[in-house]
């Protein structure tokens, strides 16, 4: 658990953080979102003491982070940044192994961990001996995620980690990360300015502006109360449509199948169809046609919008 209390940081006369309070529960993925300069990166970087706040405190598992030497603290917290920052003179293996090595893990344990992580992120084993310049942007980013996860930290800080890759690769790596997070249940603080990325990955979203958190809630709840003018304009009036990405057709039909159709894709199908219906095949083989009412009915069933 991370608890941030009354955190203040000024750069000259610019307020990056203005008495910020935030509690992040164990195993939750919290996405900090907002325009450039809203203080989201500063907030993230004050968790591993990359930024020294002017006042206020950060507690990790109810321990003030000032009680740890910065290096010790940072080795316990995974760190992943936009430009990846892979070490160009190290191989993929050495890049991933760097934190476990500092923590003096045994060679066998490191090797096992690297294998596990490369498998988890979908990197082929042959890549171990490659150098970063031989990797594509998406592959480098996966190695960056592996490096952040290497010492099995409970907390993961990610500062626009997928910002520099092309849109196609980004969707793939986001989905991969979402699955990894489902499996590993890390406490993740994730900075982005991309609303769709936030909707897809977040357990909770914190919308920031001028060093303040204007709203902090689950992605679904944000749709219900966007009373704050800025939040509404930043998330967009079409936010409920973006939100559809989080839901899968299986959720709607309340069944298990390997259909990968998300509800925004279903909506697209309905818009395309002349009578507004999309016919799908159920897991048991029977066919069913879905209409817009089915969608709204599902979404308002338990206030899920």
């Amino acid at each position: 658990m991370i608890r941030i209390a009354q955190l203040v940081k000024n750069y000259g006369n610019i307020t990056a953080l203005d008495r910020v309070d935030l509690t992040i529960e164990e195993g939750e993925c919290v996405v900090l979102i907002g325009p450039s300069g809203c203080g989201k990166s500063t907030l993230l970087r004050s968790i591993n003491r990359m930024v020294q706040p002017d006042s206020g405190s950060v507690y990790v598992d109810e321990q003030d982070i000032l009680n740890y030497p910065p290096e010790t603290l940072r080795r316990k917290i995974g760190y992943c940044i936009q430009n990846v920052g892979l070490f160009p003179h190290y191989t993929v293996y050495e890049n991933i192994a760097v934190v476990p090595k500092m923590l003096k893990w045994s060679k066998a344990k490191i090797e096992e961990r690297v294998d596990f992580l490369m498998d988890l992120t979908g990197l082929p084993k042959e890549y171990k001996t490659k150098k970063p310049h031989e990797l594509s942007g998406g592959e480098a980013q996966r190695v960056g995620v592996c490096r952040a996860l290497a010492a099995d930290p409970d907390i993961l800080l990610m500062d626009e980690p997928f910002g520099a890759v092309d849109p196609m690769t980004r969707v793939k790596i986001q989905t991969a990360f979402r699955n990894i997070q489902k499996e590993l249940k890390k406490t993740v603080v994730f900075v982005t300015h991309d609303v769709e990325e936030a909707v897809l990955l977040a357990d909770k979203i914190a919308v920031m502006q001028n060093g303040k958190i204007l709203g902090y809630d689950t992605p679904s709840n944000f749709a219900l109360h966007m009373e704050e003018e800025f939040v509404r304009s930043f998330l967009g009036v079409d936010y409920p449509v973006k939100l559809l990405k989080r839901h899968n057709i299986d959720d709607l039909l309340n069944q298990e199948s390997d259909s990968k159709l998300t509800l925004n894709e279903l909506l697209a199908g309905m818009l395309e169809s002349p009578n507004g219906g999309v016919t799908i095949q159920n897991a048991n083989g029977s066919k069913q046609t879905l209409y817009f009412e089915d969608l709204t009915h599902y979404l308002h069933k338990d206030d899920q919008v």
């Binding site: 940072r74 920052g85 892979l86």
Partner: peptide, 18 residues
């Protein structure tokens, strides 16, 4: 040296000398 490499090195817990 590329600042993001330095940032990453510090962020993963290297001391300045390391």
């Amino acid at each position: 040296i590329n600042p993001s490499i330095q940032d990453a090195a510090t962020g993963i817990g290297m001391s300045p000398l390391q």
